[in-house]
């Protein structure tokens, strides 16, 4: 993971340095003299060779200093820390919604192949692939905010001041993200359960007279969840990138929205930090998934 991180961090660092426009000139404003621009460039180390700039930046990042905004000098640490809770809250809520939808659908679809539930599951996963999240979001806003007037179309009120409003504003973004996750989880759970249902140990469990419920819950479901865990981990990564669009639509003040805002502001130090945050979170989740795999399935052990 460390080599990938180094390559990725250098990629993020250098790609963003290719963005057209001299940040020193942007900071200095249009009336600045050449000397003032040069002074700023020196102050922020922008006149150093790119490799030196990278090493300085990496050292700062590792020690937890993400630098300051190029536009208003605001410390980026604070900015990211303000935004992270919103993104984590959204991702968690989406994961919970996704799991709540996927578990029963996947189990029933596997136990009754060819049934209506099975057909609905297939249709659901095809639709969730084809319907873009931003369109689903618009449809939800149309129905629940404009037509029924039940939920706010955007924003995130402070929880301690307006707890009910806060939860209400979480529902639509979390559902938008959670549905895509549910579709994939359902499909994997279904095929994984069908696999386990045909295993010898399932037949043994039935043969020794266990009730169907016990067979399904203790033997089939537990074993079929193992491959699903991997998919779950990958889906958490997808949630993080899906959050970029969903947060932008619902004006949800998380890291994803910050990324898009930073592009608009042409503030590449913020862009760098937020992209780095998303990619590192993505890699860490993947690593945790691998480790969880070993914990759940004793047959897999990492040396």
């Amino acid at each position: 993971m460390i080599p990938v991180l180094i390559i990725v961090s250098f990629a993020v660092f250098s790609i963003i340095h290719l963005i057209p426009g001299d940040p020193a000139e942007i900071m200095a404003g249009s009336n600045a003299t050449e000397a003032q621009v040069a002074a700023l460039r020196h102050q922020y180390g922008l006149d150093q060779p790119i490799l030196v700039q990278y090493i300085i930046w990496l050292k700062n990042v590792v020690t937890g200093n993400l630098g300051n905004s190029l536009i208003n000098d605001f410390p980026i640490n604070t900015l990211i820390l303000q935004r992270v809770p919103a993104t984590i809250e959204l991702a968690l809520a989406a994961a919970i919604i996704g799991t709540i939808i996927a578990l029963p659908l996947g189990i029933i679809a596997a136990l009754r192949p060819g049934s209506i539930v099975d057909f609905v599951t297939t249709l659901f996963s095809a639709l969730s692939f084809a319907v873009p999240s931003f369109w689903l979001a618009i449809l939800l806003i149309l129905f629940f905010s404009l037509y029924l007037k039940w939920l706010p179309p955007s924003g995130r009120p402070v929880f301690s001041e307006q707890p009910v409003e806060h939860i209400k504003s979480l529902i639509m973004p979390a559902f938008t993200l959670g549905v895509a996750m549910a579709a994939k989880l359902t499909r994997y759970l279904r095929s994984s359960m069908l696999d386990v249902l045909n295993q010898d140990y399932t037949r043994t469990a039935r043969a020794k007279g266990l009730g169907e419920r016990l067979v399904v819950i203790r033997h089939v479901l537990r074993n079929s969840l193992i491959p699903v865990i991997t998919v779950f981990g990958l889906q958490i990564g997808d949630l993080l990138s899906g959050a970029i669009i969903v947060e932008s639509i619902f004006a949800w003040p998380g890291v994803g929205r910050l990324t898009i805002q930073a592009i608009g502001w042409r503030d590449y130090s913020i862009l760098q930090a937020s992209v780095m945050f998303i990619v590192v979170a993505f890699l860490i989740v993947n690593l945790l998934t691998d480790l969880a795999y070993g914990l759940i399935d004793p047959r897999i052990r990492y040396s």
Partner: peptide, 9 residues
């Protein structure tokens, strides 16, 4: 390394 990035990002 390219695949380490989410596609949309």
């Amino acid at each position: 390394a390219v695949l380490a990035f989410p596609a949309i990002l």
